[in-house]
């Protein structure tokens, strides 16, 4: 089975963030980056499927030169080769543009399965996977907790609300967006890291500029607001007023 896994590079989770001058994104010039965690689970799932069914795992990322770090990491963990859609403009592109760039790289590969993380740790739109499936013209299922390959088709377990799950079948080729915790991640091994140095990262041209469909207008830290309101009056009145405020304004019950 030929599997493509999309990896996003995100700013390290515990970084101290600062808003950039345009106030539309964080200052990432001096930030540390890491692999988007849900994508790490998608990669692990792909590696497990390969171990069971054979085939090839290709990791794909779209973004500036720095995203090669996550591709290298993917290769170190066991992916066979990597595709890099390189463009500085993709660093802040919207989900639609990213999906287009990824489709340009994955399309010609004619893969059987595409895996993405359910969503990204930074923006969390959960859109790239589904848009990419549409662009590739293949079936997709989201929030996947288990994958089974049965007779050239898939049976996957989706997570629903309230502790419910749903099993669905879909034909191959297909795209799945993988939920974190679906498996236990492997650690990076020395042998893997050494082998990764010899593996190929192929550059793919970014498709011609797509007009953004979505724009971040303003980015700011949540403002901490603390308001103190004094309730006066006789104890009975005050109590009545307090109940009303709690119910209608604070909506605690």
């Amino acid at each position: 089975m030929k599997i493509a896994v999309c990896l996003k590079q995100v700013i390290k989770r515990d970084s101290t963030l600062r808003v950039d001058d345009a106030r539309t994104w964080v200052r990432d010039a001096d930030a540390e980056f890491e692999m988007n965690e849900p994508d790490a689970y998608a990669l692990e799932e792909a590696l497990r499927l390969k171990e069971q069914h054979g085939g090839e795992v290709i990791v794909v990322s779209a973004g500036p030169a720095r995203v090669q770090t996550v591709l290298r990491e993917g290769l170190a963990r066991g992916a066979d080769r990597a595709l890099h859609v390189e463009s500085d403009a993709l660093a802040q592109a919207d989900a639609f543009a990213i999906a287009g760039a990824l489709a340009a790289a994955i399309g010609p590969e004619q893969v059987d399965l595409v895996l993405t993380g359910l969503q990204s740790d930074d923006q969390g739109f959960a859109q790239v996977g589904v848009v990419l499936a549409e662009k590739l013209g293949i079936a997709h299922a989201t929030i996947i907790m288990e994958v089974k390959v049965e007779g050239g088709a898939l049976r996957v377990k989706r997570e629903l609300e309230g502790g419910w799950f749903q099993w669905v079948g879909l034909p191959l080729p297909a795209l799945l967006t993988i939920q974190s915790g679906i498996n236990t991640l492997r650690y990076a091994t020395l042998k893997g890291i050494m082998a990764a140095k010899k593996k190929e990262i192929r550059r793919v041209d970014a498709p011609a500029g797509v007009a953004p469909r979505q724009k971040i207008v303003s980015l700011y830290f949540p403002e901490k607001t603390k308001q103190t309101r004094m309730i006066t009056g006789s104890p009975a009145d005050a109590a009545r007023e307090l109940v009303r405020v709690l119910r209608e304004d604070a909506r605690v019950f």
């Binding site: 236990t184 991640l185 492997r186 650690y187 091994t189 020395l190 042998k191 893997g192």
Partner: peptide
């Protein structure tokens, strides 16, 4: 062992 990905299970996490 660790270099080959064969660490004891409790270490993976």
């Amino acid at each position: 062992l660790v270099s080959n990905g064969e660490a004891a299970e409790y270490l993976t996490k």
